[in-house]
Amino acid sequence: MKKFLLGFLAIGFWAQAQVKPIIQKSEIVRIETTLASDNMQGRQIFSAGIDSASAFIEKEFTKIGLQYYGDLKSYRQDFKAKGKSANNVIGMLPGKSKPNEYVVFSAHYDHLGIVDYGDDKVYNGANDDASGTTAVIALARYFKELNNNERTIVFVAFTGEEVGGYGSKYFTKNINPDAVVAMFNIEMIGTESKWERNSAYITGFEKSDFGTILQKNLKGTNFNFYEDPYPSEHLFYRSDNATLAALGVPAHTISTSKMDSEPNYHQLSDEFTTLDLDNMTEIIKAIALSSESIISGKDTPSRVEKL
């Protein structure tokens, strides 16, 4: 009887250990509402608001237990832009068997700041791109708890996207592009796509088999990734994936933004109350699931043609 009980407990413990961590809507709401709050003053680069946002992301990375990236002594990657101080926020999970192969999850945490007129003065940037930054933080926690990444995962929140992509350009100069296996750049996932819920599109879908791999990993679910439906907008080279993509990295942006009819895009009305947080949570879950064969080293996306 004692041996049976011990065996039962051992099986139960093993089963419990195999349960995947859950991406909780409550956590998505907590992070999103903080980043998109008036207290962040629109998160404009070179402002007190962007400093507050950076400090919040650094605190989240600390709680998760991410390691510092490369030779950095903190989660801040400091640099100069337009002669002023700025910083990305970066954390990482070293790969277990392929530590020199990198998978990057990214979003930009800056936005447009404040105006000095009217009742609503803050460009909250809830969708653009607090939603993507929220996803990066949630995914960092998920993969830390999962604790089975064979490749190194780098989580980066870029600054300066809204004024010329300064953060991603600096990051690209300080990483070996040949070592980057894939980049999941996440931009504006807080609203439903043109295909409504449980869907998103991937910019530059045709430029590598990145999207095909992601969709294969979602077999049996009701989530679908689609090709970018806005080719005239040239979105593949309009976000923080562009600098690494130009060097051949399968670096793609995942988005749901309806670029032909997004009423709150770059408006003061881009606030937390306009987002579909249930759908956003499901999108983040889908990104996590779809990336697993790349993170495990099973799949390696084809390279993008260099510019």
Rank of each mutant, 00 (worst) to 15 (best):
S131Q: 00
K20N: 14
L112P: 01
A286S: 10
A138L: 02
P177Q: 03
Y68Q: 08
I64F: 09
L72V: 02
R43I: 04
N185H: 10
Y201V: 15
E292Q: 15
L214S: 10
A251E: 08
G167I: 09
E292P: 06
Q24C: 04
T221S: 14
G297V: 11
G165K: 08
S74W: 02
V136D: 13
V154S: 11
A48M: 06
V156R: 05
T34Q: 15
T243W: 10
V29G: 04
E196R: 03
D209P: 02
S296D: 13
N264I: 09
N264T: 13
Y142M: 02
K96P: 10
S131T: 05
I295F: 01
S296V: 01
A55T: 08
G211T: 06
I137L: 09
G95C: 07
G49H: 08
G220F: 04
L214R: 07
Q16F: 04
T152Q: 07
Q18W: 04
G164A: 05
K82D: 14
H266C: 02
G118C: 11
P94G: 13
H234A: 11
E161G: 14
Q77I: 01
F184M: 15
E271Q: 10
P177D: 04
R238G: 03
A81P: 03
P94R: 10
I254P: 09
F79D: 07
G91R: 08
D78V: 11
R197Y: 02
S255Q: 12
S52M: 13
D270F: 01
G204N: 13
S239T: 14
I287M: 07
M280T: 00
S269Q: 02
N241L: 06
P231A: 15
K73T: 15
A130I: 10
K298S: 12
I175V: 13
A135G: 02
I57A: 06
D228N: 09
M183W: 07
P231I: 09
Q44D: 15
R43N: 13
S293Y: 09
S239H: 08
E145V: 03
A36E: 13
R76E: 07
L275Q: 05
R30G: 06
D119W: 01
S261I: 01
I284E: 00
T159N: 12
H108S: 14
D128I: 04
F205N: 00
Y265E: 02
A36V: 11
W195L: 07
A36L: 10
I186K: 03
